[in-house]
């Protein structure tokens, strides 16, 4: 009977280890918070182009993550991208004239929405819209601009 007790103990430890592993995968590796209902307040921003921005991409201010991209849609009237940001409720003192821009972490990293605080005394609340936005830098356009810029500057034979 001693052998059976030992066996049961080992199996118990094994099952516990497995559960701990899943607990770690849930809490430490992934973000379980996103599973819960979204408590943040919604702010929309319109962009000419969002590049490769995806739903759930972080929204950050001064490098601190303060929310997530909740939804991405297209306004069929203006052909602009409508991005809904979900800002965590504790960051409730963001000036209404803050600007949003789509940035890239690193050269090839993920795209995220960066907020730049303005100076107004009124604060963003649920349903507000960000007026000032800056679209994503599209690499192809950037390169194209550099090439045409280089062609222009050739005439003046001056190099920057």
């Amino acid at each position: 009977m001693v052998a059976i007790k030992k066996l049961e103990l080992a199996v118990g430890v094994f099952v516990a280890l497995g559960l701990v592993a899943f607990f770690m995968l849930a809490m430490k590796v992934s973000n379980i918070a996103e599973l819960g209902e979204d408590k943040g307040y919604k702010v929309t921003a319109r962009f000419e182009s969002i590049g490769g921005l995806k739903i759930r991409a972080p929204v950050s201010l001064a490098g601190v993550r303060i929310g997530r991209v909740a939804n991405i849609g297209l306004d069929t009237q203006t052909y602009e991208a409508v991005v809904t940001l979900s800002i965590d409720p504790q960051y409730d003192r963001l000036p209404t004239d803050s600007s949003a821009s789509i940035l890239t972490s690193g050269l090839l990293g993920e795209q995220y929405v960066g907020l730049e605080p303005g100076g107004m005394d009124t604060y963003l609340k649920n349903g507000s819209t960000l007026k000032l936005t800056q679209s994503a830098l599209v690499l192809e356009k950037l390169i194209a601009r550099m090439i045409t810029g280089a062609a222009d500057s050739e005439g003046s034979s001056k190099k920057p």
Binding site: L25, K28, V29, N31, E34, R56, E110
Partner: peptide, 10 residues
């Protein structure tokens, strides 16, 4: 944590 989803990935 930012890019691994509980449902979508785990």
């Amino acid at each position: 944590q930012a890019s691994v989803g509980l449902v979508d990935d785990v």
